[in-house]
């Protein structure tokens, strides 16, 4: 077991190991960092675009990435050498540009459906006397839930990992760590969550594509669908999920009336998600994230 890990050189870290006979797993570090997450998105895009023979999946995550391959179609030493080369080049290279999209996500914060669900599981919560959004506001030092909503909608989020079930995208807000909203998960998971609930756990926001179990704090609900694996709805013709990794999300607070209007339009397949193609410059983000976020949000206006 002494050769369980291989250290990829080139600064920035990179601990490579094998996930059985079909997977390669590379962890850049044990902690979440925005710049590192952007490096991983760049790496994943580069590796995907290379169409490496025998590689079936390239899966970027928050602080690591994973590759699945068919051993019979791959020369493993060659694949590892290619991977090492790309990894080192991107980890040490100049900040890249990511061709991606920014998506407008309307959210009815503090909505009655997530409130009804979460009230059933107060015994699994750190603070049974509050609702999830009240708790999230308080532990982050906000005076009110309105302040929390203002912070959540002020700057865009970057999707850094899709996992759990198809379409579930975990995203991190493009702000320095000290400004990130951070809240513990439930002590023990709920067995029930409404579909399209917007949740936040750790430093990550996600939208539950479908109803089911879940362990993060519920902030609200969006009227828009985030997945259509059959790709029959208009917003999903090109891709079955709304937010592949690397997508930017801008959350927007809406009223109950707007929620119902949008939901009705979605049900009739008449609503079109507001999306803009963007070139996300990692360099600009690193130079002046605040001004750059405003520039990015302009694309949706």
């Amino acid at each position: 077991m002494t050769d369980m890990y291989r250290q990829l050189s080139g600064g920035g870290g990179g601990r490579l190991s094998f996930g059985g006979d079909e997977f390669i797993f590379v962890e850049l570090s044990e902690e979440m960092r925005i710049q590192q997450a952007l490096t991983i998105q760049t790496l994943a895009r580069t590796l995907t675009a290379m169409n490496l023979p025998g590689v079936t999946d390239v899966c970027p995550s928050h602080a690591s990435y994973m590759i699945r391959y068919i051993p019979e179609r791959v020369n493993l030493p060659e694949l590892l050498a290619t991977l090492q080369g790309v990894h080192e080049e991107i980890v040490t290279g100049r900040p890249a540009t990511i061709n991606t999209r920014i998506v407008d996500v309307p959210v009815y914060y503090n909505d009655p459906w997530t409130r009804e669900a979460l009230m059933k599981f107060r015994d699994r919560h750190q603070d049974p006397g509050s609702t999830d959004i009240e708790y999230a506001a308080r532990v982050n030092g906000f005076e009110s839930i309105d302040e929390l909503i203002a912070a959540h909608t002020r700057h865009p989020f970057l999707v850094t990992f899709m996992n759990f079930v198809p379409g579930n995208a975990e995203s991190v807000q493009l702000v320095p760590r000290e400004l990130q909203i951070e809240v513990p998960k439930y002590k023990s998971p709920r067995t029930e969550t409404p579909s399209r609930a917007v949740g936040h756990g750790g430093a990550f926001t996600n939208i539950y594509p479908s109803a089911g179990a879940g362990g993060v704090q519920l902030l609200g609900r969006t009227p828009i669908n985030v997945v259509d694996m059959t790709q029959t709805r208009a917003d999903f013709r090109e891709r079955p999920v709304l937010f592949p990794a690397g997508t930017l999300i801008s959350f927007r607070a809406i009223s109950e009336a707007e929620y119902f209007d949008i939901r009705a339009a979605v049900d009739a397949d008449e609503y079109r998600v507001r999306v803009a193609d963007i070139e996300f410059s990692v360099g600009k983000h690193l130079e002046d994230w605040e001004t750059y976020n405003d520039e990015l949000l302009e694309a949706l206006r």
């Binding site: 059985g20 797993f25 902690e31 928050h62 690591s64 994973m66 975990e170 750790g202």
Partner: peptide
């Protein structure tokens, strides 16, 4: 033993969410 990495969660078995290979 470790210092809890940012984003990992406080339980010693928590990690920053990552991919699970089939069979892991």
């Amino acid at each position: 033993e470790r210092d809890v990495p940012f984003g990992a969660g406080s339980d010693p078995s928590n990690v920053v969410n990552l991919g699970y290979p089939l069979g892991s």
